[in-house]
Design a protein around this nucleic acid. Structure first.
Lengths: 190, 190
DNA sequence: GTAACTTACTTCAAATTTTGAAGTAAAATA
DNA sequence: TATTTTACTTCAAAATTTGAAGTAAGTTAC
């Protein structure tokens, strides 16, 4: 199951910023036990980052296509992602920032466009009048529903069987770990 | 090991565009065997996409910090990623495009900046004079080396033991699959 | 051989996205 | 009550990305 993680036939590449399991002496033994041989190349930081970048670009394309197909012209894919991030709960801008690690001014800008397009409602909180409460309008919910509906086909392609599901979950968890490690690094250094 | 994939305590969210394993009757049996209960929520298309977006943003921050620390001012993180994508092989612009699913004009633009900064050399191919062959200069290799060096700390944080390594590999493979599925979808529709 | 087409890129202008500095107003704290 | 902090917004500039149009070299079909 664990395989050499080379893609597109570029053997040399992984060895550049890849490290061998031999670099982890305490780990090598376990791996050797589990897998016979030849599985010495391991994923690194940068390989993952590049992969994530590529996949992200791909998804942006998918989303753009879907939105074109839906005839959405007044907002772009980035705004749609914000919409999906909001989901069906009412939340403050600050909560939304946390959800996507956005920059404040950025979200502010998107929310303005989404509000102008009639996709969200913003109401000042009763308790704290500084805090704006955001929620999807009917129109916003409709767009999300349409997108999720269109996404069903992808879910079926991605999750074909139990193994796929397991792998997707592991990928998700691992990405979450990356998020934490890179996030802490950005804030507290190293 | 397989866990409920909720994060940041937003229980409601996953159930929006999440589907239950019950939606896959043929799969549910296997899962039930493997895991006792309570692990019914599964990752979807959009959750993964949002996660990838967040992680990507985080990594951009990390890279920006590292470059600031290295005192690199003439090129940005995006250009550094291109540099890392080139690695230590000589390749054509077209090959580079494939590596990162970039848009041609975009890479052209980055390559110009990288060439101006003295990070890469471009030579017209002997065989095909339309094709530019790209490779890192000493300076370019140095920057890559510095970045990879700085990245070592992250690798150690991410790959603490054999399980981490396995999960990183699974994540990598799964992302690669996403790349293919989303890539084909973008090109051939659905 | 040459006209038409394709490939491999580059250029440019515009759109989109992201950042960061500076603001405002409400809430919390001293 | 004064000061500071929080929760955002606004704006201008920068970075990134896109897409249309161009150029020049190679290929193919007469």
């Amino acid at each position: 199951m664990i395989q050499k993680l080379l893609h597109e036939g570029v053997e040399v590449e992984t060895s550049i910023d890849g490290f061998k399991t031999a670099d982890f002496p305490e780990v090598t033994a376990d791996i050797k036990k589990a897998t016979p041989a030849n599985h010495t190349v391991v994923v690194t930081h940068f390989e993952l980052a590049r992969m994530i970048e590529r996949v992200n670009r791909r998804f942006a394309g998918v989303l753009r296509n879907e939105m074109t197909r839906l005839g959405i012209e007044d907002v772009g894919p980035a705004q749609a992602m914000v919409l999906l991030a909001i989901g069906d709960v009412e939340l403050s801008v600050g909560e939304l920032l946390d959800r996507g690690h956005y920059v404040g001014s950025n979200i502010s800008y998107y929310l303005k466009q989404l509000a102008d397009g009639g996709y969200i409602d913003r109401v000042a909180s009763q308790r704290d009048k500084r805090s704006a409460r955001i929620r999807l309008t009917e129109k916003g919910e409709q767009l999300c529903a349409d997108l999720r509906n269109a996404g069903g086909a992808y879910n079926r392609m991605l999750a074909r069987n139990a193994e796929d599901l397991r792998n997707l979950e592991i990928a998700f968890q691992t990405l979450h770990r990356l998020e934490l490690v890179w996030g802490n690094a950005a804030r507290y250094g190293i």
